[in-house]
Design a protein around this nucleic acid. Structure first.
Lengths: 358, 358
DNA sequence: GGCACATACTAAAACGTTTTAGCTCGATAT
DNA sequence: ATATCGAGCTAAAACGTTTTAGTATGTGCC
């Protein structure tokens, strides 16, 4: 037999076009044409096509993607640039992206820049060397536009060539505040996000805006700013603790995210009060552990799955010649669980002052 | 000027070896040799080397990885095969892998097979088409060996050519049981993992083994088997609830993982009992939300970061000619938090029966 | 003047595809 | 008998590197 996949050298070289060509007494060009069903394939009779297809199947022919990419400049690969592979937020997005991209026949590299400016510079370049066709960023501030089609999830800077996929923070703020107001809360503590967090600023603006429209007071003494940078459940704990120990009266907390909500709940309990009987707490994100909490968290859910799917869809559309919107907005959802309840009449100073609205 | 990076066509073709060669009046071969510092480079005078290096820098030359890979059969890319990008467990491993691999100059594809046998077959092939040099699997049962160097994290099947990175389940069981025994617990509920979970069987064996050695009774009526497949906090809830409502007496639960521990705690509280005052609960894994729980979970920590790092190191070693161990064992760590406490004297039937050991 | 030897490179093949222009052959038309 | 045509293919270049065997040039030596 002249044509056996040569195992002799022990290394079993993968079957290539050349091998098939020899086997079928055709040229590599023909095989390629048939297998890709390219225009020329119309001039090839079915009989030959079948021979080719059969042989390809028989020898389990798999084209070499490197060679193909080198030739046609399409790699069906995209790059995911994240600040780190975190639990919660990031993982859910990755899951959705993975789903969509693989489904559509794209593979992806994941690269985490850990918020280091040098890596943020370098990695996109390295991804380009590897011929990725586009980039998806997650929670990453981007200052200059990249030389590839880009979608930025939770990106807020306007850079030519990049599409931002963002949450409707206005609606999010409205849902949360409305819920608290409906429950009769008036003295509400507002927690602002850390400066490095991509969403902090825009979310805070939205909260202020909505509060004004709903005539909810944002009191300076009831506003706290997160500073801790650690991904930990004690984020925000000290701030709330301080408020409680100073006996500043309030009946609810609108936290920046679920983590700080959890920290707040700890502080409240450690201070001898109950959630939600004494104080209601609203989180933000709906990370997985939000539902596992005790009490489980009432929170604004970011539709992470939708956001991931949307980002991937937009990028792929664009790679295939579609338009690139500046911005795509997705809608939040409000999840009522156990951490919120009716406002309790305040036992201290402020209680009477606003009795008229009760 | 004859040599400017041609922007004329609007597309600014990236600078290649050819361009530099022309610019320097040298051959591409020379440039390549100098830039890669290959053996031949010793015969090139420093002066020329400098000219080359300068030009490369000046024009920001970046080699095309596809072309290089095609030639040398080394892609510096590996494939990560996971069952899904989950929160907790998976995310922490990915984080560690990302860290190590990027540091060492490797990029990686992530591919999730969602436990579908067809994808499990297909994806390794597709990764090979893309010239990955090796594979790392996470929590994936592997039946046949793959045609690439492979490391399986939490893999328990013995397949030639794959290295398993596993936890010392024996020690894990010992730590957990010892802790409970030290606190005076005797009637302990044991929770077995779902059949599809990669670790279920071996962990259960370890628990049985250790219990025997420590003379701790594993009573059939105090043994429950998880069945729910959902990644949710109510895993195990019904089983514990049933035990409680049947008034089977026990003072502690050794859960299969943190999730089922959380489910158990819910059930206990809903039944009007307290954790840990009435019943102690020990988890397993130390997922992020374990520390955020209320009460926070006492648990056996899997050193996920170490496991990821180890897996990556072993694979890279092997790609560079190192040996491939069958198996590498990492050690667990026991984390005492709030969900465990001294055993309470049982108020029911069994209380007196074993008084002698108290 | 011829030979050996070192120095400083280069030519060309190879990697595995895709693509386009064109070739060959037989059949039909003139 | 020759021109025309279509059907069925193929040659060869191209993609951007790496690698190996080799060439050209100069220098020193007898």
């Amino acid at each position: 037999m002249a044509h056996q996949t040569k195992k002799e050298n022990g290394q079993e070289r993968p079957v290539g076009l050349k091998f098939l060509a020899e086997y079928l007494a055709l040229s590599p060009a023909t095989i390629s044409v048939v297998l890709n069903d390219s225009p020329t394939a119309r001039e090839i009779p079915q009989r030959t096509k079948d021979r080719v297809l059969d042989a390809a199947r028989k020898f389990r022919y798999r084209p070499n993607v490197m060679a193909r990419t080198l030739r046609q400049k399409r790699s069906s690969t995209i790059g995911l640039l994240v600040h780190e592979i975190s639990e919660g937020y990031g993982a859910l997005l990755l899951n959705a992206l993975d789903d969509y991209l693989l489904q559509e026949g794209y593979f992806y590299f994941v690269v985490s820049h850990r918020r280091r400016p040098d890596l943020l510079e370098e990695y996109p370049r390295m991804l380009m060397e590897r011929s990725v066709e586009g980039l998806i960023l997650i929670d990453t501030v981007l200052h200059k536009s990249l030389p590839l089609p880009t979608v930025n999830i939770s990106g807020h800077t306007r850079v030519p060539g990049v599409t931002n996929v963002i949450l409707n923070h206005h609606l999010a703020a409205k849902l949360a505040l409305q819920h608290l107001v409906d429950l009769g809360h008036k003295r509400i503590v507002f927690v602002k996000g850390q400066a490095f967090s991509s969403d902090s600023e825009v979310r805070w603006k939205a909260v202020q805006d909505v509060a004004r429209k709903m005539a909810v007071a944002i009191l300076p003494e009831l506003t706290v700013q997160l500073e801790d940078s650690t991904y930990s459940p004690v984020v925000g704990y000290p701030k709330i603790q301080e408020l409680l120990s100073r006996s500043v009266p309030f009946t609810a907390i609108l936290a920046y995210n679920d983590l700080s909500a959890i920290g707040a709940i700890r502080a409240i309990r450690d201070h001898g009060l109950r959630v939600p009987e004494d104080i209601s707490v609203v989180g933000f994100d709906d990370i997985a552990s939000a539902a596992f909490q005790n009490p489980s968290l009432t929170t604004v859910r970011q539709p992470l799955r939708t956001m991931g799917m949307t980002a991937a869809r937009i990028l792929l559309d664009r790679l295939n010649g579609g338009k690139d919107p500046r911005e795509v907005v997705v809608q939040p959802e409000f999840v009522v669980r156990e951490s919120t309840g009716p406002a309790k009449a305040l036992a201290r100073v402020q209680t009477s002052r606003r009795r008229k609205n009760g």
